[in-house]
Design a protein around this nucleic acid. Structure first.
Lengths: 235, 235
DNA sequence: ACGAACACGTGATAC
DNA sequence: TGTATCACGTGTTCG
Protein backbone atom coordinates (compact mmCIF):
# COMPACT_ATOMS: atom_id res chain seq x y z
CA UNK A 1 0.00 0.00 0.00
CA UNK A 2 2.21 2.75 1.28
CA UNK A 3 5.32 0.98 0.06
CA UNK A 4 4.51 1.42 -3.63
CA UNK A 5 3.92 5.10 -3.33
CA UNK A 6 7.13 5.32 -1.44
CA UNK A 7 8.88 3.57 -4.28
CA UNK A 8 7.12 5.79 -6.71
CA UNK A 9 8.79 8.76 -5.16
CA UNK A 10 12.12 6.98 -5.12
CA UNK A 11 11.83 6.23 -8.82
CA UNK A 12 10.96 9.82 -9.52
CA UNK A 13 14.06 10.89 -7.70
CA UNK A 14 16.27 8.47 -9.58
CA UNK A 15 14.76 9.68 -12.84
CA UNK A 16 14.63 6.07 -14.03
CA UNK A 17 11.18 6.40 -15.57
CA UNK A 18 9.18 9.07 -17.29
CA UNK A 19 6.04 9.81 -15.39
CA UNK A 20 4.61 12.83 -17.12
CA UNK A 21 6.71 15.41 -15.35
CA UNK A 22 9.84 14.78 -13.34
CA UNK A 23 10.08 14.69 -9.59
CA UNK A 24 8.05 16.97 -7.42
CA UNK A 25 6.34 18.90 -10.19
CA UNK A 26 4.26 15.93 -11.32
CA UNK A 27 1.62 16.32 -8.68
CA UNK A 28 3.07 14.16 -5.98
CA UNK A 29 4.86 16.51 -3.60
CA UNK A 30 7.81 14.60 -2.26
CA UNK A 31 7.97 16.62 0.89
CA UNK A 32 8.72 14.57 3.96
CA UNK A 33 8.86 11.43 1.94
CA UNK A 34 12.26 10.28 3.09
CA UNK A 35 11.52 10.68 6.75
CA UNK A 36 8.32 8.68 6.50
CA UNK A 37 10.00 6.03 4.39
CA UNK A 38 12.64 5.43 7.01
CA UNK A 39 9.84 4.69 9.42
CA UNK A 40 8.42 2.12 6.98
CA UNK A 41 11.73 0.34 6.51
CA UNK A 42 13.82 0.28 9.68
CA UNK A 43 16.37 -2.04 8.03
CA UNK A 44 17.09 0.58 5.44
CA UNK A 45 20.58 0.36 3.98
CA UNK A 46 20.82 1.78 0.50
CA UNK A 47 18.42 4.58 -0.12
CA UNK A 48 21.20 6.36 -2.01
CA UNK A 49 21.38 4.25 -5.19
CA UNK A 50 24.55 2.11 -4.96
CA UNK A 51 24.11 -1.04 -2.87
CA UNK A 52 27.78 -2.09 -2.85
CA UNK A 53 28.19 -4.21 -6.03
CA UNK A 54 25.08 -6.32 -6.51
CA UNK A 55 25.13 -7.65 -3.01
CA UNK A 56 22.01 -8.74 -1.08
CA UNK A 57 19.24 -6.73 -2.69
CA UNK A 58 17.58 -4.50 -0.15
CA UNK A 59 13.86 -4.56 0.34
CA UNK A 60 13.73 -1.30 -1.49
CA UNK A 61 15.53 -2.62 -4.54
CA UNK A 62 13.48 -5.79 -4.75
CA UNK A 63 10.22 -3.96 -4.53
CA UNK A 64 11.57 -1.38 -6.92
CA UNK A 65 12.30 -3.93 -9.62
CA UNK A 66 9.00 -5.59 -8.88
CA UNK A 67 7.20 -2.36 -9.53
CA UNK A 68 9.21 -1.85 -12.69
CA UNK A 69 8.32 -5.34 -13.93
CA UNK A 70 4.73 -4.73 -13.08
CA UNK A 71 4.69 -1.51 -15.03
CA UNK A 72 6.27 -3.07 -18.10
CA UNK A 73 4.06 -6.15 -17.97
CA UNK A 74 1.01 -3.98 -17.85
CA UNK A 75 2.27 -2.06 -20.84
CA UNK A 76 2.79 -5.28 -22.76
CA UNK A 77 -0.71 -6.39 -21.90
CA UNK A 78 -2.15 -3.13 -23.17
CA UNK A 79 -0.19 -3.43 -26.40
CA UNK A 80 -1.38 -6.99 -26.90
CA UNK A 81 -5.02 -6.01 -26.50
CA UNK A 82 -4.64 -2.95 -28.69
CA UNK A 83 -2.90 -4.89 -31.43
CA UNK A 84 -5.88 -7.23 -31.59
CA UNK A 85 -8.18 -4.26 -31.74
CA UNK A 86 -6.12 -2.85 -34.59
CA UNK A 87 -6.42 -6.13 -36.44
CA UNK A 88 -10.15 -5.95 -36.03
CA UNK A 89 -10.11 -2.40 -37.32
CA UNK A 90 -8.52 -3.57 -40.55
CA UNK A 91 -10.94 -6.48 -40.89
CA UNK A 92 -14.10 -4.49 -40.37
CA UNK A 93 -15.52 -1.72 -42.53
CA UNK A 94 -14.18 1.15 -40.47
CA UNK A 95 -11.24 3.47 -40.52
CA UNK A 96 -8.43 3.40 -37.99
CA UNK A 97 -9.96 6.21 -35.95
CA UNK A 98 -13.09 4.47 -34.75
CA UNK A 99 -13.60 4.19 -31.05
CA UNK A 100 -12.79 1.10 -29.12
CA UNK A 101 -16.39 0.88 -28.00
CA UNK A 102 -17.93 1.44 -31.42
CA UNK A 103 -15.46 -0.95 -32.93
CA UNK A 104 -16.40 -3.65 -30.44
CA UNK A 105 -20.07 -2.94 -31.10
CA UNK A 106 -19.53 -3.61 -34.78
CA UNK A 107 -17.57 -6.71 -33.94
CA UNK A 108 -20.45 -8.01 -31.87
CA UNK A 109 -22.82 -7.52 -34.79
CA UNK A 110 -20.44 -9.27 -37.15
CA UNK A 111 -20.02 -12.25 -34.88
CA UNK A 112 -23.77 -12.48 -34.45
CA UNK A 113 -24.17 -12.66 -38.21
CA UNK A 114 -21.53 -15.31 -38.31
CA UNK A 115 -23.38 -17.36 -35.74
CA UNK A 116 -26.45 -17.40 -37.96
CA UNK A 117 -24.64 -18.15 -41.15
CA UNK A 118 -22.26 -20.85 -39.98
CA UNK A 119 -25.11 -23.20 -39.29
CA UNK A 120 -26.37 -22.66 -42.81
CA UNK A 121 -22.86 -23.05 -44.14
CA UNK A 122 -22.61 -26.37 -42.38
CA UNK A 123 -25.77 -27.51 -44.10
CA UNK A 124 -24.52 -26.31 -47.44
CA UNK A 125 -21.26 -28.15 -47.09
CA UNK A 126 -22.96 -31.50 -46.93
CA UNK A 127 -24.57 -32.83 -50.07
CA UNK A 128 -28.17 -33.96 -50.40
CA UNK A 129 -28.78 -37.29 -48.79
CA UNK A 130 -29.90 -40.38 -50.73
CA UNK A 131 -33.04 -40.70 -48.66
CA UNK A 132 -36.06 -38.43 -49.00
CA UNK A 133 -36.38 -36.08 -46.06
CA UNK A 134 -38.67 -33.33 -44.85
CA UNK A 135 -38.09 -31.18 -41.80
CA UNK A 136 -39.92 -28.10 -40.60
CA UNK A 137 -38.29 -26.54 -37.58
CA UNK A 138 -40.68 -24.14 -35.91
CA UNK A 139 -38.54 -21.12 -35.34
CA UNK A 140 -37.18 -20.55 -31.92
CA UNK A 141 -36.16 -17.00 -32.72
CA UNK A 142 -38.94 -14.52 -33.34
CA UNK A 143 -36.99 -11.65 -34.80
CA UNK A 144 -38.66 -8.34 -35.59
CA UNK A 145 -41.82 -9.64 -33.96
CA UNK A 146 -42.79 -12.07 -36.69
CA UNK A 147 -42.28 -15.82 -36.62
CA UNK A 148 -39.38 -17.17 -38.63
CA UNK A 149 -38.70 -20.84 -39.17
CA UNK A 150 -36.70 -23.14 -41.35
CA UNK A 151 -37.96 -25.82 -43.73
CA UNK A 152 -35.84 -28.43 -45.43
CA UNK A 153 -36.78 -30.72 -48.28
CA UNK A 154 -34.49 -33.34 -49.78
CA UNK A 155 -35.69 -35.52 -52.66
CA UNK A 156 -35.17 -36.52 -56.28
CA UNK A 157 -34.72 -33.49 -58.47
CA UNK A 158 -37.21 -32.41 -61.14
CA UNK A 159 -37.48 -29.16 -63.01
CA UNK A 160 -40.91 -28.23 -61.68
CA UNK A 161 -40.08 -28.80 -58.05
CA UNK A 162 -39.11 -25.25 -57.24
CA UNK A 163 -42.14 -23.64 -58.93
CA UNK A 164 -44.43 -26.07 -57.16
CA UNK A 165 -42.72 -25.29 -53.89
CA UNK A 166 -43.18 -21.62 -54.57
CA UNK A 167 -46.87 -22.11 -55.28
CA UNK A 168 -47.30 -23.83 -51.95
CA UNK A 169 -45.59 -21.03 -50.07
CA UNK A 170 -47.64 -18.41 -51.90
CA UNK A 171 -50.90 -20.15 -51.17
CA UNK A 172 -49.98 -20.26 -47.49
CA UNK A 173 -48.94 -16.59 -47.64
CA UNK A 174 -45.48 -17.51 -46.44
CA UNK A 175 -42.56 -15.39 -47.45
CA UNK A 176 -39.19 -16.91 -48.30
CA UNK A 177 -36.39 -14.93 -46.77
CA UNK A 178 -33.65 -17.24 -47.97
CA UNK A 179 -33.46 -20.28 -50.20
CA UNK A 180 -30.38 -22.46 -50.27
CA UNK A 181 -30.71 -24.99 -53.04
CA UNK A 182 -28.15 -27.71 -53.58
CA UNK A 183 -28.49 -30.37 -56.21
CA UNK A 184 -25.97 -32.95 -57.29
CA UNK A 185 -26.38 -36.12 -59.26
CA UNK A 186 -30.10 -35.74 -59.64
CA UNK A 187 -30.73 -35.24 -55.95
CA UNK A 188 -31.88 -31.88 -54.57
CA UNK A 189 -32.06 -30.36 -51.16
CA UNK A 190 -33.82 -27.10 -50.40
CA UNK A 191 -33.25 -25.29 -47.14
CA UNK A 192 -35.72 -22.46 -46.84
CA UNK A 193 -35.85 -19.68 -44.30
CA UNK A 194 -39.49 -18.79 -44.08
CA UNK A 195 -41.29 -15.87 -42.47
CA UNK A 196 -44.92 -15.98 -41.34
CA UNK A 197 -46.98 -12.84 -40.98
CA UNK A 198 -49.11 -11.76 -38.04
CA UNK A 199 -52.24 -13.86 -38.54
CA UNK A 200 -50.28 -17.10 -38.76
CA UNK A 201 -50.49 -19.69 -36.06
CA UNK A 202 -48.52 -22.83 -35.54
CA UNK A 203 -51.17 -24.53 -37.65
CA UNK A 204 -49.54 -23.07 -40.74
CA UNK A 205 -46.42 -25.05 -39.97
CA UNK A 206 -48.38 -28.29 -40.09
CA UNK A 207 -50.08 -27.18 -43.27
CA UNK A 208 -46.71 -26.60 -44.83
CA UNK A 209 -45.42 -29.94 -43.64
CA UNK A 210 -48.33 -31.78 -45.23
CA UNK A 211 -47.98 -29.82 -48.44
CA UNK A 212 -44.30 -30.71 -48.63
CA UNK A 213 -45.14 -34.33 -48.04
CA UNK A 214 -47.58 -34.41 -50.93
CA UNK A 215 -45.03 -32.56 -53.02
CA UNK A 216 -42.48 -35.24 -52.27
CA UNK A 217 -44.90 -38.02 -53.27
CA UNK A 218 -45.78 -36.20 -56.46
CA UNK A 219 -42.06 -35.93 -57.18
CA UNK A 220 -41.80 -39.69 -57.68
CA UNK A 221 -44.34 -39.65 -60.52
CA UNK A 222 -42.02 -38.42 -63.25
CA UNK A 223 -43.80 -35.73 -65.19
CA UNK A 224 -41.06 -33.66 -66.76
CA UNK A 225 -42.93 -30.62 -68.00
CA UNK A 226 -41.20 -27.75 -69.61
CA UNK A 227 -38.71 -25.86 -67.50
CA UNK A 228 -40.02 -22.71 -65.90
CA UNK A 229 -38.01 -19.85 -64.56
CA UNK A 230 -37.80 -19.69 -60.81
CA UNK A 231 -39.43 -16.80 -59.00
CA UNK A 232 -38.61 -16.59 -55.35
CA UNK A 233 -38.75 -13.66 -53.01
CA UNK A 234 -35.29 -12.65 -52.14
CA UNK A 235 -34.25 -10.60 -49.23
CA UNK B 1 -1.24 19.50 -14.01
CA UNK B 2 -0.72 20.49 -10.44
CA UNK B 3 -4.32 21.49 -10.07
CA UNK B 4 -5.69 18.00 -10.37
CA UNK B 5 -3.45 16.57 -7.74
CA UNK B 6 -4.43 19.44 -5.57
CA UNK B 7 -8.07 18.58 -6.09
CA UNK B 8 -7.28 14.97 -5.49
CA UNK B 9 -6.16 15.84 -2.03
CA UNK B 10 -9.18 18.02 -1.50
CA UNK B 11 -11.48 15.20 -2.48
CA UNK B 12 -9.70 12.89 -0.13
CA UNK B 13 -10.28 15.33 2.67
CA UNK B 14 -13.97 15.68 1.87
CA UNK B 15 -14.30 11.91 1.70
CA UNK B 16 -16.59 12.31 -1.28
CA UNK B 17 -15.07 9.42 -3.21
CA UNK B 18 -13.57 6.07 -2.41
CA UNK B 19 -10.02 5.95 -3.60
CA UNK B 20 -8.72 2.69 -2.25
CA UNK B 21 -7.99 3.95 1.20
CA UNK B 22 -9.21 7.16 2.75
CA UNK B 23 -7.22 10.29 3.18
CA UNK B 24 -3.51 10.29 3.78
CA UNK B 25 -3.12 6.52 3.96
CA UNK B 26 -3.75 6.05 0.24
CA UNK B 27 -0.22 6.83 -0.77
CA UNK B 28 -0.52 10.51 -1.45
CA UNK B 29 0.61 12.28 1.69
CA UNK B 30 -1.51 15.37 2.05
CA UNK B 31 1.12 17.22 4.02
CA UNK B 32 1.45 20.84 3.13
CA UNK B 33 -1.26 20.56 0.53
CA UNK B 34 -3.35 23.50 1.65
CA UNK B 35 -0.52 25.94 1.82
CA UNK B 36 0.65 25.13 -1.67
CA UNK B 37 -2.88 25.21 -3.02
CA UNK B 38 -3.40 28.70 -1.78
CA UNK B 39 -0.37 29.74 -3.76
CA UNK B 40 -1.89 28.17 -6.90
CA UNK B 41 -5.21 29.94 -6.47
CA UNK B 42 -4.79 33.43 -5.03
CA UNK B 43 -8.50 34.14 -5.55
CA UNK B 44 -9.39 31.38 -3.19
CA UNK B 45 -12.71 31.86 -1.42
CA UNK B 46 -14.28 28.61 -0.36
CA UNK B 47 -11.77 25.99 0.54
CA UNK B 48 -14.02 25.06 3.44
CA UNK B 49 -16.92 23.39 1.58
CA UNK B 50 -19.89 25.83 1.66
CA UNK B 51 -19.60 28.64 -0.91
CA UNK B 52 -22.54 30.68 0.37
CA UNK B 53 -25.60 29.08 -1.32
CA UNK B 54 -24.64 28.10 -4.88
CA UNK B 55 -23.13 31.45 -5.64
CA UNK B 56 -20.34 31.99 -8.13
CA UNK B 57 -18.54 28.65 -8.23
CA UNK B 58 -14.97 29.01 -7.16
CA UNK B 59 -12.14 27.74 -9.31
CA UNK B 60 -11.79 24.90 -6.85
CA UNK B 61 -15.39 23.82 -7.15
CA UNK B 62 -15.44 24.04 -10.89
CA UNK B 63 -12.33 21.96 -11.30
CA UNK B 64 -13.62 19.62 -8.63
CA UNK B 65 -16.82 18.87 -10.50
CA UNK B 66 -14.82 18.62 -13.70
CA UNK B 67 -12.64 15.96 -12.16
CA UNK B 68 -15.72 14.19 -10.84
CA UNK B 69 -17.33 14.23 -14.29
CA UNK B 70 -14.14 13.01 -15.83
CA UNK B 71 -13.91 10.13 -13.41
CA UNK B 72 -17.49 9.07 -13.98
CA UNK B 73 -17.25 9.41 -17.74
CA UNK B 74 -14.18 7.24 -17.74
CA UNK B 75 -16.03 4.66 -15.69
CA UNK B 76 -18.93 4.69 -18.14
CA UNK B 77 -16.51 4.24 -21.01
CA UNK B 78 -14.92 1.25 -19.32
CA UNK B 79 -18.31 -0.29 -18.65
CA UNK B 80 -19.34 0.21 -22.24
CA UNK B 81 -16.26 -1.53 -23.58
CA UNK B 82 -16.47 -4.33 -21.04
CA UNK B 83 -20.14 -4.95 -21.76
CA UNK B 84 -19.30 -5.49 -25.39
CA UNK B 85 -16.53 -7.82 -24.41
CA UNK B 86 -18.97 -9.74 -22.24
CA UNK B 87 -21.37 -10.05 -25.16
CA UNK B 88 -18.55 -11.45 -27.22
CA UNK B 89 -17.76 -13.89 -24.43
CA UNK B 90 -21.27 -15.30 -24.64
CA UNK B 91 -21.17 -15.48 -28.43
CA UNK B 92 -17.86 -17.29 -28.69
CA UNK B 93 -16.96 -20.75 -27.46
CA UNK B 94 -15.32 -19.65 -24.24
CA UNK B 95 -16.26 -19.31 -20.62
CA UNK B 96 -16.64 -16.01 -18.83
CA UNK B 97 -13.15 -16.17 -17.36
CA UNK B 98 -11.14 -15.92 -20.54
CA UNK B 99 -8.70 -13.08 -20.83
CA UNK B 100 -9.48 -9.94 -22.70
CA UNK B 101 -6.53 -10.55 -24.97
CA UNK B 102 -7.29 -14.22 -25.67
CA UNK B 103 -10.92 -13.36 -26.20
CA UNK B 104 -10.01 -10.72 -28.75
CA UNK B 105 -7.65 -13.16 -30.44
CA UNK B 106 -10.52 -15.60 -30.88
CA UNK B 107 -12.73 -12.80 -32.12
CA UNK B 108 -10.14 -11.90 -34.74
CA UNK B 109 -10.12 -15.49 -35.97
CA UNK B 110 -13.88 -15.59 -36.11
CA UNK B 111 -14.15 -12.39 -38.05
CA UNK B 112 -11.52 -13.62 -40.48
CA UNK B 113 -13.62 -16.71 -41.14
CA UNK B 114 -16.62 -14.51 -41.60
CA UNK B 115 -14.78 -12.41 -44.16
CA UNK B 116 -14.15 -15.50 -46.26
CA UNK B 117 -17.60 -16.93 -45.96
CA UNK B 118 -19.73 -13.85 -46.46
CA UNK B 119 -18.47 -13.38 -49.99
CA UNK B 120 -19.38 -16.96 -50.75
CA UNK B 121 -22.74 -16.48 -49.12
CA UNK B 122 -23.38 -13.51 -51.37
CA UNK B 123 -22.63 -15.68 -54.37
CA UNK B 124 -24.90 -18.40 -53.09
CA UNK B 125 -27.79 -16.01 -52.69
CA UNK B 126 -27.94 -15.34 -56.39
CA UNK B 127 -29.03 -18.10 -58.72
CA UNK B 128 -27.08 -19.43 -61.69
CA UNK B 129 -27.15 -17.06 -64.63
CA UNK B 130 -28.69 -18.00 -67.98
CA UNK B 131 -25.42 -17.42 -69.79
CA UNK B 132 -22.48 -19.80 -69.60
CA UNK B 133 -19.67 -18.38 -67.52
CA UNK B 134 -16.18 -19.33 -66.40
CA UNK B 135 -14.06 -17.37 -63.99
CA UNK B 136 -10.78 -18.27 -62.33
CA UNK B 137 -9.68 -15.67 -59.86
CA UNK B 138 -6.00 -16.12 -59.06
CA UNK B 139 -5.98 -15.89 -55.31
CA UNK B 140 -4.89 -12.66 -53.81
CA UNK B 141 -4.52 -14.16 -50.37
CA UNK B 142 -1.81 -16.76 -49.92
CA UNK B 143 -2.73 -18.19 -46.56
CA UNK B 144 -0.60 -20.82 -44.87
CA UNK B 145 2.04 -20.28 -47.53
CA UNK B 146 0.23 -22.07 -50.33
CA UNK B 147 -1.71 -20.44 -53.14
CA UNK B 148 -5.48 -20.45 -52.84
CA UNK B 149 -7.82 -19.28 -55.57
CA UNK B 150 -11.42 -19.42 -56.57
CA UNK B 151 -12.92 -20.93 -59.72
CA UNK B 152 -16.49 -20.51 -60.86
CA UNK B 153 -18.32 -22.41 -63.57
CA UNK B 154 -21.88 -21.73 -64.63
CA UNK B 155 -23.50 -23.78 -67.39
CA UNK B 156 -26.29 -26.20 -68.28
CA UNK B 157 -26.52 -28.99 -65.76
CA UNK B 158 -25.75 -32.62 -66.50
CA UNK B 159 -25.22 -35.53 -64.16
CA UNK B 160 -21.62 -36.18 -65.15
CA UNK B 161 -20.46 -32.60 -64.79
CA UNK B 162 -19.23 -32.84 -61.24
CA UNK B 163 -17.28 -36.10 -61.73
CA UNK B 164 -15.66 -34.64 -64.84
CA UNK B 165 -14.79 -31.52 -62.94
CA UNK B 166 -13.30 -33.65 -60.21
CA UNK B 167 -11.20 -35.55 -62.72
CA UNK B 168 -9.79 -32.30 -64.04
CA UNK B 169 -8.84 -31.09 -60.59
CA UNK B 170 -7.24 -34.42 -59.74
CA UNK B 171 -5.19 -34.50 -62.92
CA UNK B 172 -3.89 -31.02 -62.14
CA UNK B 173 -3.20 -32.08 -58.54
CA UNK B 174 -5.44 -29.33 -57.26
CA UNK B 175 -7.21 -29.78 -53.99
CA UNK B 176 -10.76 -28.57 -53.47
CA UNK B 177 -11.15 -26.89 -50.13
CA UNK B 178 -14.75 -25.94 -50.67
CA UNK B 179 -17.37 -26.60 -53.30
CA UNK B 180 -20.57 -24.59 -53.41
CA UNK B 181 -22.92 -26.05 -55.96
CA UNK B 182 -26.21 -24.44 -56.83
CA UNK B 183 -28.53 -25.74 -59.50
CA UNK B 184 -32.01 -24.61 -60.36
CA UNK B 185 -34.13 -25.19 -63.43
CA UNK B 186 -31.48 -27.21 -65.19
CA UNK B 187 -28.78 -24.59 -64.76
CA UNK B 188 -25.80 -25.21 -62.45
CA UNK B 189 -23.16 -23.02 -60.94
CA UNK B 190 -20.10 -24.36 -59.14
CA UNK B 191 -17.98 -22.07 -57.02
CA UNK B 192 -14.82 -23.88 -56.01
CA UNK B 193 -12.20 -22.84 -53.51
CA UNK B 194 -9.03 -24.46 -54.77
CA UNK B 195 -5.64 -24.92 -53.18
CA UNK B 196 -2.43 -25.39 -55.17
CA UNK B 197 0.60 -27.10 -53.68
CA UNK B 198 4.20 -25.90 -53.65
CA UNK B 199 5.28 -26.83 -57.19
CA UNK B 200 2.37 -24.99 -58.79
CA UNK B 201 2.90 -21.86 -60.80
CA UNK B 202 0.39 -19.48 -62.26
CA UNK B 203 0.49 -21.70 -65.36
CA UNK B 204 -1.75 -24.15 -63.55
CA UNK B 205 -4.43 -21.51 -63.39
CA UNK B 206 -4.46 -21.20 -67.16
CA UNK B 207 -4.47 -24.97 -67.50
CA UNK B 208 -7.51 -25.09 -65.31
CA UNK B 209 -9.22 -22.34 -67.23
CA UNK B 210 -8.74 -24.16 -70.53
CA UNK B 211 -9.91 -27.41 -69.04
CA UNK B 212 -13.06 -25.76 -67.76
CA UNK B 213 -13.67 -24.25 -71.15
CA UNK B 214 -13.50 -27.62 -72.84
CA UNK B 215 -15.71 -29.01 -70.11
CA UNK B 216 -18.27 -26.35 -70.87
CA UNK B 217 -18.22 -27.15 -74.59
CA UNK B 218 -18.54 -30.83 -73.87
CA UNK B 219 -21.52 -30.01 -71.67
CA UNK B 220 -23.59 -28.93 -74.68
CA UNK B 221 -23.28 -32.34 -76.33
CA UNK B 222 -25.90 -34.14 -74.28
CA UNK B 223 -24.53 -37.51 -73.26
CA UNK B 224 -26.50 -38.46 -70.21
CA UNK B 225 -24.56 -41.40 -68.89
CA UNK B 226 -25.57 -43.16 -65.73
CA UNK B 227 -25.43 -41.12 -62.58
CA UNK B 228 -22.32 -41.45 -60.49
CA UNK B 229 -21.88 -40.56 -56.88
CA UNK B 230 -19.91 -37.40 -56.28
CA UNK B 231 -16.51 -37.64 -54.63
CA UNK B 232 -14.96 -34.35 -53.71
CA UNK B 233 -12.35 -33.60 -51.13
CA UNK B 234 -13.94 -31.80 -48.29
CA UNK B 235 -12.20 -29.79 -45.73
C1' DA C 1 -14.26 25.73 -22.22
C1' DC C 2 -16.00 21.18 -22.38
C1' DG C 3 -16.74 16.35 -23.20
C1' DA C 4 -14.82 12.17 -25.37
C1' DA C 5 -11.35 9.00 -25.93
C1' DC C 6 -6.79 7.34 -25.01
C1' DA C 7 -2.36 5.56 -22.49
C1' DC C 8 -0.40 5.33 -18.31
C1' DG C 9 0.88 3.84 -13.50
C1' DT C 10 -0.98 1.83 -9.60
C1' DG C 11 -3.38 -1.30 -6.00
C1' DA C 12 -5.80 -5.48 -5.69
C1' DT C 13 -6.32 -10.15 -6.57
C1' DA C 14 -5.91 -15.09 -8.31
C1' DC C 15 -3.01 -18.97 -9.09
C1' DT D 1 6.92 -16.73 -4.01
C1' DG D 2 6.51 -14.39 -8.62
C1' DT D 3 3.44 -13.63 -12.44
C1' DA D 4 -0.53 -13.10 -14.67
C1' DT D 5 -5.09 -10.16 -15.10
C1' DC D 6 -8.27 -6.50 -13.91
C1' DA D 7 -10.48 -1.85 -12.43
C1' DC D 8 -9.48 2.48 -11.15
C1' DG D 9 -8.08 7.47 -11.18
C1' DT D 10 -5.36 10.48 -13.56
C1' DG D 11 -2.98 13.45 -17.23
C1' DT D 12 -3.32 14.56 -21.89
C1' DT D 13 -5.01 15.47 -26.37
C1' DC D 14 -8.52 16.40 -29.82
C1' DG D 15 -12.85 18.34 -31.78
Amino acid sequence: MDQSSELYRLLAQNGAFSLGGAGGSCGFPATQSMSSSSSYYPLDKSTTAAASEAAVPSAHDRALTALKNHKEAEKRRRERINSHLDKLRTLLPCNSKTDKASLLAKVVERVKELKNETSEIAELESFPSETDEISVLSGEQSEDGRLVFKASLCCEDRSDLIPDLNDILNSLQLKTLRADIVTVGGRIRNVLLIAANDHHSLESVHFLQNALKSLLERSNSSLTSKRRRLVLHHK
